[in-house]
């Protein structure tokens, strides 16, 4: 298995941040996507990110994955070193918003894509991935092609591909966004399970406040575009978390605080959209 034993049980050690962002800005032409974004993620921590649509969440991930360089002047630190975004290429495990499975590759060959790029011999990579199939609920599907899978299975293949690219920091961009509520709840529990077994640091984008609280050690609420951090909410719910935790008073109290912040930001972006329409 993916060996990464960490002694501490829950929230990562804040003294040891793996990722730090300060004053990070990103503009696309005249569009400011991120403004003065600041956050710090501790080693082993599970941080969820919520925010109105179009507020710059995927942009943030593109920067942390090394795909996009932020505007100059911001500070980006990874494993306690100041870095350019491009230095992070190949050092962060990134799962984009869409599953982006390769239709000409089988389940197993999609899963080992990153390993192949790293130069692991195909046979060895396949053997490793085969052992993981049951854990990802894909036993017996090794030789299927993506078009033969359900949405939930495709998502799990994409997750498996991300997990097999063994990097300390994982970025998951709305991995369950396209799933129905039932499958989604199942996948959430399953993800916590996998995470509990192989501790990694996870940054997780979602639109779903319940999901953000249920999964995270900490929730970052982003402002409307240009995205910044509106609110940082610690989630001190015990782990492992059972599904009915969503009805506990502590959960509901956190949810109330988050919803208030999100509501405010959603109104802002809605008003901005309306304003633009009137202006035209």
């Amino acid at each position: 298995m993916l060996q990464k034993e960490r002694p501490s049980a829950t929230a990562g050690d804040p003294a040891k941040p793996i990722l730090e962002l300060r004053n990070v800005n990103k503009t696309f032409g005249s569009v400011a996507a991120l403004h003065d974004f600041r956050a710090s993620v501790a080693l082993g921590e599970f941080v969820t990110v919520v925010g109105p649509s179009g507020c710059g969440k995927s942009t943030l991930f593109n920067i942390v994955a090394g795909l996009e360089e932020p505007d100059t002047g911001g500070i980006l630190r990874f494993e306690s070193r100041s870095v350019h975004a491009s230095d992070l290429l190949g050092r962060v495990s990134f799962m984009p918003q869409r599953d982006l499975l390769f239709s000409w590759r089988t389940v197993i060959d999609n899963a080992i894509l990153a390993l192949e790029v790293e130069g692991v011999p195909r046979k060895k990579a396949r053997a490793e991935a085969l052992g993981l199939l049951p854990e990802f609920g894909l036993s017996g599907f090794a030789d299927h092609y993506p078009h033969q899978l359900s949405g939930g299975m495709r998502q799990r293949v994409a997750l498996m591909r991300t997990f097999l690219f063994k990097r300390e920091l994982m970025l998951l961009d709305e991995p369950f966004g396209a799933l129905d509520a039932l499958t989604r709840a199942m996948m959430q529990r399953w993800l916590l399970d996998v995470w509990q077994k192989n501790r990694r640091t996870i940054l997780f984008i979602t639109h779903d406040v319940d999901e953000a609280i249920f999964l995270g050690d900490r929730v970052l609420v982003m402002t409307a575009r240009p995205g910044g951090v509106k609110l940082e909410q610690r989630v001190d719910l015990p782990r492992p978390r059972s599904p009915d935790i969503v009805t506990s008073p502590a959960f509901i109290e956190i949810k109330r605080a988050l919803l208030a912040a999100i509501e405010e930001e959603s109104m802002k972006s809605f008003a901005a959209a309306n304003f633009r329409e009137y202006a035209q």
Binding site: A65, L89, G90, V92, S93, F94, L100, L113, V117
Partner: peptide, 9 residues
């Protein structure tokens, strides 16, 4: 998809 590949290095 190109970006995904790039993120794998």
């Amino acid at each position: 998809a190109v970006d995904l590949m790039r993120s794998f290095g």
